[in-house]
Design a binder for these strands. Structure first.
Lengths: 285, 285
DNA sequence: GGCAATATGGAATGGTTATTCCACTTGAGT
DNA sequence: ACTCAAGTGGAATAACCATTCCATATTGCC
């Protein structure tokens, strides 16, 4: 080994975040030798390249040798270039970066001490990152189109089973409060099919279903769709059977904790939709 | 080589953007075999993982073999997994640059008004800050106490009306999946009171209600409580009538957007509780 | 129900990559 | 100008990773 890791910067542990690394370079970079300084400068100027490139490609771009990058990493106390690179990759993963780390920590914790709070924390994190994903996956245009269709409907039929049911249950409540006619297809006496058959093209339907898609929901959505009823789907991927038969669909991919997928993103959409429809109707008369 | 690249999907060149890939999967997904479909679904649901992970780590996360990922890439006409991965890396790079912009846009939008996306953004923000508040307002000890009580119950009775109903509906679903006896008091024929009367001190109840507290919920909670049934309340303040009669209660104060309060924090709690109870029971036997 | 075609799991392989090592250079102190 | 420590370039190496291959399992068809 060339040098004792961390000697130059004292015996501090390597910074685990990009910002911390930045500070370290800013305060102590006068002590860096020429090539290391050159490499460090390039790293801070092109963080994305560091995250996604190979040592060889980065070295070439920065005008140094690959070994210099390894040395730089050692200088800051990292185990090697790969370790150094992790900081840049985390940064790239927007906000989800600390999420996986935390999740792993929580998982370790639950195995060791069976701490209930870790569990709650895990679900909170899953919910949070699901929300982050929502703003990315639902585009303004898509949302507006869905609102358009639903605002023009006479009666809105709500289809959801099992895990997705709370979304429809909430929307039924919201629609009622907002003075929007809706029918929640959740009858316990098995007449949902017959009720749905009464839907007309002038109506519309919202179907919510996530993998593994409840057969009932899918069948009902298909029936409504082929009856000419405009169908808005809240589902989790392009592979969803709902995406295939829907007029428009909104992607809601939820993160999970311990196999239990969050509902926060879906629920948030379920809150926004009714209000948006009500707003649209008010402005259009 | 297993197959001629691109044969299955025609001789089209492999899509070079994430969206194009998405479309391809959407239109031709019926032709994908089970494992390939599974891998494709994971890829679309966790694009960041594909971008930054290794074939082995991704395969493990998706529950498939590394070779399956290579086959998937070939299926779509890519030269290999690495080529396939480039699409996801590009997406990550371009997204990272616009990410902060987007967040700012959402924040600005909430002030601006009439646009539908601003509305969605507003609800997302409300949900997010509700989650932040949740980790503060629910203490480890409180949560553990509630889990304690519920883990010792024979049957768990669920009380919720109106806006809080989705929480109870979800818990009923989760309890069923986890093999925990529960009764959701939501009968449409008005026999909830009689059913609740059958609850014994060896059972327990969870009541969810937020201001303005639905009279039905409060009455039912009080009845259960005075019958000696341990009562856990999910409610929004010390002033809540539920806080008065509950054995333990958890504070869930949701933020609102335009007067519509979020449900994310409550929903997250509703997800964590059943799992925590199941865990506790497993460890205690 | 049997056969062929396709899909899959898992180990072997070959290529690429980070890392290490060593000879050489640079620069600072005396 | 000499010496020594530190820095650097570049080749050698060892670890890792994507890829391939083959035996087994599954599916679809007759």
């Amino acid at each position: 080994m060339d040098d004792i890791p961390g000697l130059e910067t004292g015996t501090l542990p390597a910074p685990r975040t990009f910002d911390a690394l930045k500070d370290l370079v800013a305060t102590g970079h006068a002590r860096l030798p020429k090539r290391l300084s050159q490499a460090a400068q390039y790293a801070l100027a092109h963080p994305d390249d560091i995250a996604l490139g190979t040592a060889a490609s980065i070295a070439a771009a920065a005008g140094v040798q690959p070994s210099t990058l390894v040395r730089l990493a050692h200088h800051f106390g990292y185990g090697g270039f790969s370790d150094f690179q992790l900081v840049f990759r985390d940064r790239l993963k927007s906000r989800a970066s600390t999420y996986e780390e935390r999740l792993r920590k929580i998982e370790d914790g639950t195995l060791g001490g069976s701490d209930e709070v870790a569990l709650l924390g895990g679900f909170i994190q899953a919910a949070r990152s699901s929300l982050d994903a929502l703003s990315d996956s639902v585009s303004p245009a898509q949302f507006a189109q869905c609102v358009d269709v639903l605002a023009g409907a006479d009666t809105i039929y709500l289809v959801a089973r099992r895990r997705a049911y709370p979304l429809a249950a909430y929307m039924a409540y919201a629609f009622a409060k907002l003075g929007i006619r809706s029918v929640l297809l959740d009858s316990a006496n098995g007449i949902d099919g017959e009720i749905a058959d009464l839907a007309r093209p002038g109506d519309a339907a919202i179907a919510c279903s996530f993998s593994p898609y409840a057969p009932d929901s899918v069948a009902q959505a298909k029936a409504l769709s082929s009856a000419g009823v405009p169908l808005i789907a809240l589902t989790d991927s392009v592979m969803s059977p709902l995406a295939a038969c829907a007029t428009h669909w909104l992607e809601v991919s939820e993160n999970d904790f311990g196999g239990f997928r969050s509902l926060s993103a879906g629920m948030t959409l379920a809150m926004a939709l009714p209000v948006a429809i009500a707003e649209r109707r008010r402005h259009q008369g």
